[in-house]
């Protein structure tokens, strides 16, 4: 499917259980590098759970059990010798609600680098990250100001700057624009197009138009079968194909708004 693209993440037979409850079932797919892959699907089908498998955030839920493999450039991140802390520096995450630390703008960006023992020039790193997140011009004179004084859209771009300051290869975005107004949303979407030159992006979104606008590939998730609560990927392919001629009837029903 991706003759042109290197594979950044390769998911093989992934299952996630919370105690006795199976949340994700038998997912296999490949995420191309330096492309935007969108994960869409109805509420409760496990989109966020799936996204959190890529940086082992599910480890934080005590009852969660992940089986199967997630290969990150060939290395299984669920291998017993891999520590999640290390994974998360290479696979960053931006959350649904902007969640800057209640510290200065500068500190927000510098934090990740500092705890990971960054040896270079911190001022340069902060500027570079803020520029990459298209925020530098708006905040360059207020770096000491509290991050909480920024608008929602600016806060979210700060969170993106914070994520890229630790120089990850992949950025996971969990509905990054759902709390933002349409203009701020478009800014984030534009930014994603810039970021994909350097980063592999995986985005979960409720907003199908957003997935259609920004992504190169789309994964459609749905409960695996009637009565089950386990989600799975039912169709994965290039975004134009998914939105004009999906192969699966359920994808068709969902994206044309006839689901349910």
């Amino acid at each position: 499917m991706f003759d042109k693209h290197e594979i950044a993440l390769s998911v093989k037979n992934l299952n996630v259980d919370y105690g006795d409850f199976r949340a994700l079932e038998n997912i296999s797919l490949e995420i191309p590098a330096r492309q935007i892959t969108a994960i869409i699907g109805p509420s409760g089908c496990g989109k966020s759970t799936f996204l959190r498998c890529f940086n082992r955030m599910n480890d934080l839920v005590p009852t969660a059990r992940v089986t199967g493999e997630v290969l990150f450039y060939g290395q299984n991140i669920y291998d017993s010798k891999v520590n999640p802390v290390e994974v998360r520096r290479h696979i960053g995450m931006v959350f649904q609600k902007p969640n800057p630390f209640p510290k200065s703008i500068y500190e927000n960006v510098a934090y990740g680098a500092r705890i990971n023992g960054y040896k270079g020039n911190m001022d340069e790193l902060v500027e570079r990250s803020l520029r990459a997140a298209a925020l530098w011009d708006e905040v360059k004179d207020d770096l000491k100001k509290s991050a909480l004084a920024l608008s929602g859209g600016q806060q979210q771009r700060l969170c993106i700057a914070r994520a890229i300051a630790v120089e990850p290869q992949v950025i996971l975005m969990d509905e990054p624009a759902s709390a933002l107004d349409p203009i701020a949303t478009l800014k984030i979407e534009e930014l994603m197009q810039e970021l994909k030159k350097d980063y592999t992006i995986v985005i979960v979104t409720h907003n199908m138009q957003q997935a259609a606008r920004v992504s190169d590939y789309t994964a459609m998730m749905m409960l695996s079968k009637e009565g089950s609560r386990a989600g799975t990927v039912i169709e994965f392919g290039p975004t134009p194909q998914i939105f004009t001629s999906p192969r699966d009837r359920r994808t068709e029903d969902y994206i044309t708004g006839r689901f349910g």
């Binding site: 199908m208 939105f243 004009t244 999906p246 994808t251 068709e252 994206i255 044309t256 708004g257």
Partner: peptide, 9 residues
């Protein structure tokens, strides 16, 4: 109406 897939076609 932002038609998709079949509707768009």
């Amino acid at each position: 109406q932002q038609p998709m897939a079949h509707d768009l076609r």
